[in-house]
Nucleic acid binder design. Sequence first.
DNA 1: ATAATGAAAGTCAATATTAGTCAAAGGTAG
DNA 2: CTACCTTTGACTAATATTGACTTTCATTAT
Lengths: 155, 155
Amino acid sequence: MQGKNVSDIIEKYLKKILAEDSEVEISRSEIANLFNVVPSQINYVIKTRFGIPNGYIVESKRGGGGYIRIEKVKLLDNLDIINLIVESIGDTLSYKEGKSIALTLLENDIINNKEVNIILSAINCKTLNTGNKTIENNLRARIMISILNHLKYES
Amino acid sequence: MQGKNVSDIIEKYLKKILAEDSEVEISRSEIANLFNVVPSQINYVIKTRFGIPNGYIVESKRGGGGYIRIEKVKLLDNLDIINLIVESIGDTLSYKEGKSIALTLLENDIINNKEVNIILSAINCKTLNTGNKTIENNLRARIMISILNHLKYES
DNA sequence: ATAATGAAAGTCAATATTAGTCAAAGGTAG
DNA sequence: CTACCTTTGACTAATATTGACTTTCATTAT
């Protein structure tokens, strides 16, 4: 979240706009130029910081008049988004992705700060470590899905 | 306890900042350089002097713009109860036992009903099933202990 | 209409830049 | 001497940056 690397700065820039507008539409090359980075870094920023787990949906178009549009989704307006998140998990989940999901739930007032911490404790790398990363990620996915499914009915 | 060794000096340095700011963010290599030690010694200092028992939480990020952030947290007054429960768990925990722990926490106003349900979702038999009951119970113990440890403080 | 062209964005893998782990070696207190 | 703590460094892991190559789409030329 700090500003020592360009990806974080670009993330902040975009989120600042999204804090007011619920949607941004950018030209990849323009933004890349603005921050003096290679165009594909914009894809990197989007992929790592604006996925469904983070509460964003991204659309884009190539060719002439191309664009990238980032939309902030609201879980309360549309509980189906939780299903999207569950789908995006599939059967494997890293801690980082799990954390993004928990923070998205927090932002949408589905859980509070204490509950974020409970969830993060449960899916923690140290906690879930079994010596096998694949098994760990499968387990984390199952735990997160179980929690999400429960939240669907209780909130 | 005095500054005869570098680890103590680094500890003091960081705690002096934390006495005013409740949070420090450092670059591992910079601090290592500042005190003329190998980078991994910073990890040693953090591990031995800034753990949860000491009232600190540590977050970090690798790669470009990486950092280590140390946050001082406020320990809560339910410490004794939670410590007792943690000790009673050991390294194995059945779902039934886990459920009674969650209910004990509820009775003591350490968590609320929703939080009980989140915990139960996480330690559920179906969620944690790996085909091996022993492993499942070990895992459940680790998850519960991790959650309990985080319930000791506020962030 | 169809094909060629150019202007976007996407993918992926190599490289760079951090921090983490672990165990061996070196000190120090009792 | 022994047990514990500190220091060191080789190896590992995660994250960021870069650029060559690919795909998609609108426009222009035939």
